[in-house]
């Protein structure tokens, strides 16, 4: 119990650092792909430090709760991932974390922020079933909903859940706000909806959201690593592979519409994951 606690707490402390490095690497590599030099690797940390040095500016005071909630819940999800908690509950907490951001964006009277929030909800609805199916897949392969069982499994998940893994890739693309799914907020979409969900968060509150994004980066790549949890190196390799694919697609694709994304996720990707699950039943 106590070792699990330390593991969880260590994850909560280390995840933003790892996530920040991942995001830094992402920016550097993207720049290189575009023929630019790009920012320093540590740029995400500089950004976050700066944001916490800025003045807190809000449109209404209730916003602060949503920013805290967003950050705290993603940290909690990371904690649960590291301690091997219940996978389904983990997903619900993750969803609630995103929802906090959405509600925060909708709580201000700003049309841009509203549009971003609406899109973010659609995105959530688009990927949520895939994630749940993934957890079901873990359950079918291991007979338990606890992530602990995935860590202790003797056979890598990827061998039983190859299609779910592909489906999971698109979830990661959505979560990282990568093209073709960078709908709600991104560094590229600022012409259209300014900054979407994060628009009206400024200073430290934006910093919290950036920090939460670092957590997300580490969390989702960690989840990708779960597909080969038997071997740490393979897990890292898998996570790196997911990272590389998202990066590449981001630079190859144009942004698509919300409705397109919803349809795509609920037909093609959902179908992929479902096929895998049905196959598991039949086995």
């Amino acid at each position: 119990m106590s070792t699990r606690m330390t593991l969880g707490l260590a994850a909560v402390v280390l995840a933003p650092i790892v996530g920040g490095l991942i995001r830094g690497l992402d920016r550097v590599l993207t720049a290189r792909l575009q023929g630019r030099q790009g920012p320093p690797l540590l740029q995400p940390f500089f950004d976050i430090i700066k944001l916490f040095q800025k003045e807190p500016v809000v449109v209404n005071r209730t916003q602060v709760f949503y920013a805290y909630l967003h950050l705290a819940l993603i940290a909690l999800a990371t904690f649960m991932l590291a301690t091997g908690g219940d996978a389904l509950m983990l997903l619900f907490i993750l969803a609630f974390s995103t929802l906090a951001l959405v509600i925060g964006a909708m709580s201000v009277r700003s049309p841009f922020s509203r549009i971003g929030a609406q899109r973010e909800i659609v995105m959530m609805v688009a990927y949520e079933p895939i994630l749940i199916l993934m957890v079901i897949g873990f359950y079918l392969a291991n007979g338990s909903f606890r992530l602990q069982s995935v860590y202790e499994a003797s056979r890598p998940m990827l061998l039983s859940l190859p299609l779910v893994f592909i489906a999971y890739l698109s979830v990661v693309m959505i979560k990282f706000q990568k093209s073709p799914f960078d709908l709600a907020t991104s560094h590229h979409a600022h012409q259209e909806i300014v900054k979407g969900v994060t628009l009206e968060f400024a200073g430290p509150y934006l910093g919290m959201i950036e920090l939460a994004h670092c957590y997300e980066a580490a969390f989702f790549l960690g989840l990708a690593g779960l597909f080969w949890a038997t071997n740490a190196w393979m897990a890292a390799l898998l996570a790196a592979g997911v990272f590389a694919v998202t990066l590449l697609l981001d630079n190859l694709c144009a942004r698509l519409t919300t409705h397109w994304m919803f349809r795509f996720m609920w037909t093609v990707v959902f179908g992929l994951a479902l096929t895998n699950i049905i196959w598991l039943y039949w086995r």
Binding site: R27, Q34, R36, F46, F112, H190, V194, K195, T198, A202
Partner: peptide
């Protein structure tokens, strides 16, 4: 553009004053 690349200095062109320095 790649030739000058603002992002080298960590400069990001954000679209709104709330995030800008």
């Amino acid at each position: 553009s790649p030739l000058y690349d603002l992002e080298r200095f960590g400069i990001i062109h954000v679209g709104n004053p709330k995030h800008a320095d």
